[in-house]
């Protein structure tokens, strides 16, 4: 479903530029649950962002079902196909948890009532109670924010879920629950799920594990 070919990426700063990825090649198939692991700064988040179409690789290309990302409407791709759980959650600070989860659905013109209903169901599934609905992100713990962010990624219904350390702030019970949800999505619904993690337990559950080091990928 996703094909990464000779991908390199350079962060172009004002004073220096950093080569975060060097010639990465890999393949991700639908219906599978992947884990990407590696030391801090090895380029995991960078790869994930490129898979989400936030930017085009500096060199090489990424294909989505055989179609190069460069020729696609990447906004539409993010709205409808790929959803991301960011390492730092990236929730709208001035929207409540419920509004945050409803946002991607509203972008797809789902009616407000349906969106609210789905959002509440998802918030329930990732283990948060009704009291979270009206909470703003600043009033939530890291783990709570993380789970709202997961709910938001699931809300759009896109077939690709990209999650950057989605269980990093969670206790083991919650971690298990999230991994179970992700695995289910891959195996039962045919989603492509890619999870970045430092956690060996999560790696164990994955169908395949990619290891990254200094911007390069090893299997």
């Amino acid at each position: 479903m996703l094909e990464v070919r000779d991908v390199g990426y350079i962060y172009q700063g004002k004073y220096q530029s950093i080569e975060a990825l060097k010639r990465v090649n890999c393949h991700f198939a639908a219906g599978k649950f992947y884990a990407v692991t590696g030391p801090s700064g090895s380029g995991k988040s960078t790869l994930l962002s490129l898979l989400a179409g936030l930017d085009l690789p500096t060199s090489g290309e990424i294909l989505v079902e055989g179609c190069t990302m460069a020729a696609m409407d990447r906004d539409k791709y993010r709205r409808e196909v790929a959803s991301v759980v960011y390492q730092s959650f990236n929730l709208f600070p001035l929207l409540t948890a419920l509004e945050n989860v409803m946002y991607p659905m509203e972008l797809l013109h789902v009616s407000k009532a349906t969106a609210a209903e789905t959002a509440k169901r998802l918030i329930g599934e990732i283990g948060l109670g009704e009291k979270t609905y009206q909470q703003f992100p600043v009033m939530m713990s890291g783990g709570e924010q993380q789970r709202v962010s997961i709910a938001r990624a699931l809300a759009a219904g896109g077939k690709i879920i990209l999650a950057d350390e989605p269980t990093g702030n969670l206790d083991s019970a919650n971690e298990e629950n999230i991994v179970k949800i992700m695995k289910n999505l891959a195996h039962e619904k045919g989603y492509l799920v890619i999870v970045i993690t430092h956690n060996p337990n999560v790696c164990e559950q994955a169908d395949a594990v990619y290891r990254m080091r200094d911007g390069e990928l090893r299997t």
């Binding site: 709205r79 991301v84 946002y103």
Partner: peptide
Amino acid sequence: RPEIAIMRSLGVSR
């Protein structure tokens, strides 16, 4: 700006 970035990441066009 962060808010704009989040909107863009969720697929709102420029």
